[in-house]
Design a protein around this nucleic acid. Structure first.
Lengths: 151, 151
DNA sequence: GTAATTTCTAAACCTAACTTTAGGTCAAGC
DNA sequence: GCTTGACCTAAAGTTAGGTTTAGAAATTAC
């Protein structure tokens, strides 16, 4: 057993609160790369706890799994990530969060001028600038309303 | 034609930027209730432009269609909604938005103490209080990480 | 050493919010 | 009056992010 150290998928699930199936799914998406023990079962490093925590928080912030993977891929490959490594990828994270808050605040401040007043003439309003739900899924520029101010 | 007035679904689509199929879908979900002309085609009121705008903005705020329907159902049934009617349902809207901003701001302020510092000891951190992505889908209390402070 | 628990894979299923497709009807332009 | 574009319905397909199921193999517990 000594040579087959590491956390089992069940242990990882208990520690993170994630379902075992979710962890397997994350592996399939390339977010974590466990090794296998002699019996073919997944074994995880303690650092994977941090990775999964990062995933869970980033999801709360509205990031998609591919986006989260992109961030995680910036972590060093050969060694266990250090505090500095994590801080580095958290910076972009925080920037995105700041942007999101800014957008929502602008949205709120414009609410009284749009729906709040009952006119709903969104064309002239900040609301037609869609909140970046993480990544505009190439849906094309969807303007919100063509209602004329007079109506 | 005079008796079959109203906007066609195509006109509504152009005015809102929504796809025709999306508008039909919203009708199926009960968000709008067009009438039919003599040929069986949908005809919409101008007020439906406002309803659809409301839907689009509410979605940007993270509301689900059932939640949006619940708000729209509070509009008067017999007559065309007035400014006052719209303002009324926009109030709850704004409250939800405020709450969301507050949560995100708290999250951001805690970021340096969690991922930002590299420790990722989420248990002791505000991040384990999930952002209400509109409506906690009864997933059960998912605590974020069981990593001990020492690790 | 055997029973119970975990874990394995692959594939099917799930929800939300739509889009696409197929086959057919309606309406508008000339 | 006919052709072209808009519209109709119903059903199936799509994407994200997983969960569930089934049958088999590994591990742990006693």
């Amino acid at each position: 057993m000594a040579l087959n150290e590491g956390l089992s998928i069940g242990a990882l699930a208990k520690r993170t609160g994630l379902a075992v199936s979710a962890i397997r799914y994350y592996e399939a998406q390339g977010l974590i790369k466990p090794w296998r023990n002699t019996g073919g079962q997944r074994r995880f490093e303690r650092a994977d706890l941090r990775r999964l925590s990062f995933v869970m928080i980033a999801q709360q912030f509205g990031f998609t799994l591919p986006q989260i993977k992109a961030e995680l891929d910036r972590l060093p490959g050969g060694r266990t990530p250090t505090k500095a490594d994590w801080s580095k990828i958290s910076a972009g994270f925080r920037a995105a969060l700041d942007a999101r808050i800014t957008t929502l605040t602008k949205l709120r401040d414009n609410l009284d001028g749009c729906i709040g007043c009952g006119c709903l003439s969104l064309e002239a309003c900040a609301l037609y600038n869609p909140t970046d739900r993480a990544a505009d899924k190439g849906q094309g520029p969807r303007y919100l309303m063509g209602d004329t101010p007079t109506s």
